[in-house]
């Protein structure tokens, strides 16, 4: 399994061999510094910690700068771990630089990002409710959720609603994983990954790219 941290650059289009126009997202991924290698003996589990996007040492506190110094790099804005199975041995050492070439053999990737914030959203937008008719006597209820419960359906809930009832509320700016993007191209010179389809978050947002877990 391979993982890399990166930044969403934006979307564009690319022709494939058969002349089909594919919608693609460009991700600037890596080079990521290995900040720490965690092993079962020292930390209780196996993992590799990556850092991406340099930041001035004066902008970070001493513990963070010191942590980066052990890996012989500057502090990073975006630091994430790649968890490894218990019996696996990490292949990289502390201080290594990981580039997009780790995906050379992968056909597809999963991308994890923070979705665009939608604010306080109603049930139609948030949960895909149908709403009410625009006319035929509907008054002030066009996008309303409808009944949220009844005496009968509430039975056994102690006078409260059922847990997990879909209602209006905050939507977006949360971690979203999109799976099995086929990998269209890799630019090792510019550290770019070109993946098919759209990826969570706005352009410039941080994303985690990992080789697809589904084959």
């Amino acid at each position: 399994m391979a993982m890399l941290l990166g930044k969403k650059v934006g979307m564009t289009q690319v022709y494939d061999e058969s002349g089909k126009l594919l919608p693609v997202t460009v991700i600037q991924a890596g080079p990521c510094a290995v900040m720490q290698v965690k092993t079962g003996e020292t930390d209780g589990y196996n993992a590799v910690q990556f850092g991406f996007d340099d930041v001035k040492p004066s902008r970070r506190n001493n513990p963070e700068t010191g942590h980066a110094k052990k890996a012989n790099t500057t502090p990073k804005k975006f630091v994430k771990e790649m968890r490894l199975p218990d019996n696996a041995k990490p292949e990289c050492k502390i201080g290594d630089l990981i580039t997009v070439s780790v995906f050379a053999e992968s056909k597809s990737v999963d991308v994890i990002g923070t979705s665009k914030g939608k604010g306080f959203a109603g049930v139609m937008k948030r949960h895909g409710f149908g709403g009410f008719p625009a006319s035929h006597g509907t008054e002030r209820k066009h996008r309303a959720p409808g009944s949220i419960s009844s005496f009968a359906s509430d039975a056994g809930h102690g006078g409260n609603l059922k847990k997990g009832k879909k209602m209006a509320g905050h939507m977006g700016s949360c971690r979203v994983t999109t799976k099995s993007h086929s990998l269209v191209a890799i630019d090792e010179e510019k550290n770019l990954l070109v993946v098919k389809g759209s990826v969570p978050g706005s352009a410039g947002g941080y994303v985690i790219v990992r080789s697809s877990q589904k084959v």
């Binding site: 650059v9 934006g10 690319v14 460009v26 191209a185 630019d187 352009a203």
Partner: peptide, 14 residues
């Protein structure tokens, strides 16, 4: 910077 990278990807298809 952003358009530069997008252009680099696009240019191969032109």
């Amino acid at each position: 910077m952003k358009t530069e990278m997008l252009d680099a990807v696009e240019r191969k298809g032109l």
